[in-house]
């Protein structure tokens, strides 16, 4: 049976490991920014072709599932909003709740969770497999910086595509909600759009987009740190992939709350 000292030792070791991972994530971010800025001067630019490929994988190929989820969330918000406001006889004000909830909260959150599950896990698994197959060592001994070659393109891809996907999800969600509101309250899509225009401010959309930039950083860095820290064989790849998804989603939700606390009050 583990003694108190053993348990304290485990807690201490995990704390140190956690702090080291945060430090590694910071160093990776700094390294990536270094290569983005200084790479072209040193004739070692970040591979834009690979970044574009990542953008396609993160963004374009995710459009079908993002559309489905965006529409679903929009309809769900409309259902709940109308149900709640009916108690006060204020169903017609549902558009205010839908517009603000979708753009400030659900659009960025659902998109980030989806991308964490889809692209963050893929990033962690790819890096872990490359590490186990000595491909990362091969890059280093070829004089090719692994951060420039492997980390910068997906980070760039996520930073560009997650905000873009978020705006897309916002639009699709609002459309889905509009269709339901029109059907349920007979409001009509044009008056619904007019009401959205009156209610929504650019700041509301930017609030969501700003969060999505932070989420993109979290997804990329958590994926890379987990992939780089793999130990063992195939089992290790599975472990870090799962770990990266769980950590990324947790970090997204907690950051979302902190962001809302800091900015919204």
């Amino acid at each position: 049976m583990a003694t108190l000292v053993d348990r304290l030792e485990i807690i201490g070791r995990r704390t140190v490991s956690g702090v080291a991972e945060v430090g590694l994530a910071g160093a990776l971010l700094a390294d990536t920014l270094f290569w983005l800025v200084v790479g072209p001067w040193r004739r070692q630019p970040v591979r834009l072709g690979a970044a574009v490929q990542q953008m396609a994988e993160v963004g374009v190929y995710a459009l079908p599932i993002v559309t489905v989820l965006g529409l679903t969330i929009g309809v769900m918000l409309a259902i709940q909003g109308i149900y709640t406001l009916r108690n006060f006889g204020a169903e017609s004000h549902v558009v205010v709740g839908i517009a603000l909830s979708m753009t400030r909260e659900f659009g960025p959150l659902i998109t980030a969770v989806l991308v964490a599950g889809r692209s963050g896990s893929a990033l962690a698994a790819r890096l872990a497999t490359m590490r186990i197959n000595q491909e990362v060592d091969a890059l280093r001994v070829m004089g090719i910086d692994p951060v420039r070659y492997l980390v910068a393109p997906p980070l760039l891809g996520l930073l560009v595509m997650l905000p873009a996907l978020t705006v897309f999800t916002d639009g699709v969600g609002l459309l889905g909600a509009g269709l339901y509101v029109d059907n349920e309250l007979g409001m009509g899509l044009v008056p619904y759009a007019q009401r959205l225009k009156d209610v929504l401010k650019v700041d509301d959309v930017l609030h969501g987009v700003g969060k999505s930039v932070i989420f993109a950083l979290l997804i990329a860095l958590i994926g890379v740190v987990n992939g780089a820290g793999v130990t063992g064989g195939a089992e290790g790849v599975g472990r870090v992939t799962t770990r990266s998804v769980v950590q990324a989603i947790s970090a997204i939700v907690i950051t979302d709350m902190l962001f809302a606390f800091a900015v919204t009050r």
Binding site: M130, V141, M142
Partner: peptide, 19 residues
């Protein structure tokens, strides 16, 4: 170190070819 590495080649045990 990068300069040194440009003058060296390495063949790893499993090949380490980029899949």
């Amino acid at each position: 170190l990068e300069d040194v590495r440009r003058h060296t080649g390495v063949a790893f045990q499993g090949g380490a070819l980029f899949s």
